[in-house]
Design a protein around this nucleic acid. Sequence first.
DNA 1: TTCTCGGTTTGTGTATACATTTAAGGACCA
DNA 2: TGGTCCTTAAATGTATACACAAACCGAGAA
Lengths: 238, 238
Amino acid sequence: MRASDRAYVALRDEIVTWQLAPGTVLAEVEQSTRLGVSRTPLREALSRLVADGLVATQAGRGLVVTEVSVDGITELFEVRQALEQQAARLAAARRDPQIFAALRDEFARVPELLPADDAARHDYFDLVRRLDEATDEATQSPYLVQAISNVRTHLVRIRRLATDKPQRLLAAAREHAAIVDAVLAGDPELAASATHLHLHNSLASVRANAQRALAQAGESGMVLPPVTRSIPVLVGIP
Amino acid sequence: MRASDRAYVALRDEIVTWQLAPGTVLAEVEQSTRLGVSRTPLREALSRLVADGLVATQAGRGLVVTEVSVDGITELFEVRQALEQQAARLAAARRDPQIFAALRDEFARVPELLPADDAARHDYFDLVRRLDEATDEATQSPYLVQAISNVRTHLVRIRRLATDKPQRLLAAAREHAAIVDAVLAGDPELAASATHLHLHNSLASVRANAQRALAQAGESGMVLPPVTRSIPVLVGIP
DNA sequence: TTCTCGGTTTGTGTATACATTTAAGGACCA
DNA sequence: TGGTCCTTAAATGTATACACAAACCGAGAA
């Protein structure tokens, strides 16, 4: 594996897990010595993070980790709505019925499993991840998948601001099931509407918690819930 | 201006104007000597082009200019539809009426001017550019603007495959006027529908010409229409 | 006490040298 | 004659040195 890739993955993971808090200055020499790579590959990693929008140049202070705000989250979801509704439409028109039939069966079993332990929640998040993958695959649209993946990078960081109340998890599971049903039925507009509804509720849930979480983080130096097995790194927001 | 920026702008311009044809291999030493910068800033420029999707790593051959195909154009428009419809919705909800009233008046005068000379067409394309800018501004959504700008980079390159038949230009002007009217009226769904219609027709027009243009280019070594004053670098596709 | 000027220091931008990987060509063996 | 392996060369990946710019700090003067 290339040094620049290692540096990129390391920094991105630290940013999305809030180990590198928003506002942190990323000086080249400091980070290159810390990560054990020279400045050249580190600069490549940083430029990729800038392209991702996780890092930005701040006049005078160099490169800093970008801020997270409730308004920013709302704006992000405006893009997410557009892209994921389109993905749902295309997936409904082009999906492999077998794959989505299998996913439908799995989602049907979620409600009985979900209130259970941490492992069950982990399985659920993994199921959501596989739904995302299957949808991406079904769209057969590399440009769209690329655009969605740009958005997902930010969602991973925001993910930590959402709480997983059992009530919301169950509702999210029902919403996901509705999306799968519509895609499986081959109904593009129904799939888009189901996605619209899900993301609307998801945003409402996040907004309700993010306001408080960000305020707490601001005063207490970014104390955030530890990473548990139930929160994989790459997953949507319930 | 930094050397890496100069290299990036130079390469991007050469790619979108087809001076660097799809499939061209971009070797580091070759390009760095040609552009008069050293390998370090050139590599940064290349990595930005890879992030843009104008250049891709091809196994064994290094970095090559990405291909353009009718299917690829169609996929690009699937993303463009999603993003620009959303932009139209948000702009309709948040626009400054004065700005769009002025644009409406300008678009109203286009039909009488358009069949005229090259300068008139240039004015029209500039008007479209200003509409794009006003819409971006009105959305108040940096994430959305960023995502759209990624798509526009590719549109600039595709632009050269579209012909500007007077009939299509006039139709496009009417479609743009409909979008402006809907945004000015503050009707988000009408604005989205007008955008949907415009992009549908735009894609149909491009597809009709791109098939032939790409076939010609393939056999004759990429002979493309010269850049005239009527085709600014950054503009939508009629 | 405050403002300004100059030195110092830190950091980024660029160039270049070195290391490593990979692909192509030829030779040798089956 | 075909295939495989080895050699070689070229290109990319990495490290480091140097140059330049700007921000900070201290001292002196108003």
